[in-house]
Nucleic acid binder design. Structure first.
Lengths: 134, 134
DNA sequence: CTTGACCCTGAAGCGCGGTTCAGGGTGTAG
DNA sequence: CTACACCCTGAACCGCGCTTCAGGGTCAAG
């Protein structure tokens, strides 16, 4: 059995984050030792790593909660999971597109920049004063 | 001279946002009418549009404050502005790269999905249980 | 028997860019 | 004279994912 600090170390998150996950219902509240310390079964580490990896590919904690619920629900199908993943992909693609648009504008503007020119005649500032970005 | 609502309408932001910009020092506090109403000169609209467009290409309000300071400072050069823009571009590129990595993982995982399979044998969940994403 | 690392709780704070709320005054059309 | 749209202020609130703080108890080593 593991103390919260052990789980934190092995899963690479902070002790505070673990208590936070418990409050949010992402990790089941473990049994307590006589002194009140949380006592985790070793598989808790796997659960926390699941959460961490899901976050790394863009799922919010509330998304993760749904995924964990699917995982636990008998009768849930792979398609249910794929739908969530596909939705997240579309979300990510939207963000990439937005960022790409920003980058394109900045590229176009800075390309016209002559470093030594005074700021009063800066193409970037001019663009911000006059252009439509949408 | 314009009331705050006029400026809001013409620049496409909310009245509350305008008051917020004033508090943050992005827009100079305008004179007041006898009744205490803010009275803006027409060029205030251009300033707010500048802020809005800068935000649209990824600058935070604190970035915008710096850009506006450069614009006002005699002796500031175009290179100063370009440096900020280039830094923002790198920031954006970093975000795109992160999102792209997320997307790549999700794509690979969902590609192996067979919709009808039970969630217990879902490649996406399996990946979250076992893969390293970094 | 003290030191230091660990554990507990509840509440508050952070960044960001506003929005919302409570509680007022003002201006004008009908 | 009464709606109703507009304006004012200061303070609190939102989401998100934690972190920090205040104020304690526990446990192992030396």
């Amino acid at each position: 059995m593991l103390n919260i600090g052990d789980v934190a170390r092995e899963s690479g998150v902070s002790v505070e984050a673990l208590r936070y996950y418990e409050r949010q219902g992402l990790v089941a509240a473990p049994d307590r030792d006589d002194n009140g310390y949380r006592l985790y079964r070793p598989d808790a580490v796997a659960r926390v790593r699941f959460i961490k990896r899901a976050q790394e590919v863009g799922f919010t904690l509330s998304d993760v909660k749904e995924l964990l619920a699917l995982q636990a629900r008998p009768g849930a199908s792979c398609g249910d999971v794929r739908m969530r993943a596909a939705g997240k992909m579309r979300e990510i693609e939207g963000k990439i597109a937005t960022l790409q648009r920003m980058k394109t504008f900045l590229e176009a503007w800075t390309a016209q920049c002559v470093d030594a020119a005074p700021a009063e005649r800066c193409p970037v500032l001019d663009a911000l004063k006059n252009d439509e970005t949408d």
